[in-house]
Structure formats: C-alpha cells, structure tokens
Amino acid sequence: MSTGLLASAISVVIVCIGVLGLILKRNLLMKLLSLNIVNTATILFFVLIVYNPGDRAPIDPTPGVQYADPLPQALVLTSIVINFGVLALSLLFTMVLVKRYHTLDLIKIEDFVRREFEEEKS
C-alpha cells in the first residue's frame, strides 16, 4: 500500500469529520467552516489518490522521469477558486439571515420561518 493511498484515506476521514460537523453543528457559521473543511479535504483526496512517492511536479516533462498526474491537479485548481466564490455568497446569505432573525442558530431560524409562514397563512 502506497503512502499516497494511505494519505488519501486520511483525507476521506477528514471529509467524514467535516460532514459530521455540517450535520451536528447548529451554528450557521460553524456549518460553513465545516463545509470549507470538506472542500479542502476533497481537493486533497483528488490530488493524493494519484500520488506515488518520488513524483516530480509536471513541469517541463522529459521522457523517463516519473511525474505527478497533471489531470486531477488541473481539475481541482479551478474548483478552489469556485469554492471561494461560493463561500463568499453563502456568507452573504448568512449575514442577511442574521440581520433578519438576530441569531446564528439554524433551528431557531427554522422555527421563526415556520411561525412567519403560519401567520401569513392564517
């Protein structure tokens, strides 16, 4: 078993921890932080799963030398930037929610929304 595989297994464990945080934490910002951990760990997984010890950066390749696989690197490079944009957007929505409901607690926000909905209906 190679080091890369073992490390990618650890990154799956990190994704698991992030998802647990995403579900169990009630604070909206903590949820976003967990999402961030999941993002980073997923990127790590993609890069690590093709890693072999002794890989060199795929720059100026010459035949006969062992290089890292460029494909997953190129794919995750764009996703890092997109994660940032999406994170900024979700932080903005969190700010809007906090302005309206004065709490970061998701369960209380849900209660409020339900109450507002019922008031509107009746």
């Binding site: 890069v47 690590l48 890693y51 060199r56 190129a74 490079l77 890092i80 930037v81 940032f84």
Partner: peptide, 15 residues
C-alpha cells in the same frame, strides 16, 4: 510536497 505547485500557490493565497 507531492508535486502540485500550481494548486499549492492557489490554495495558499485563497485559503
């Protein structure tokens, strides 16, 4: 460390 300097630079600046 694992030969992905492009990803390292971007992750460093953004993260």
């Amino acid at each position: 460390w694992i030969g992905a300097p492009d990803v390292a630079v971007t992750e460093g600046a953004i993260g």
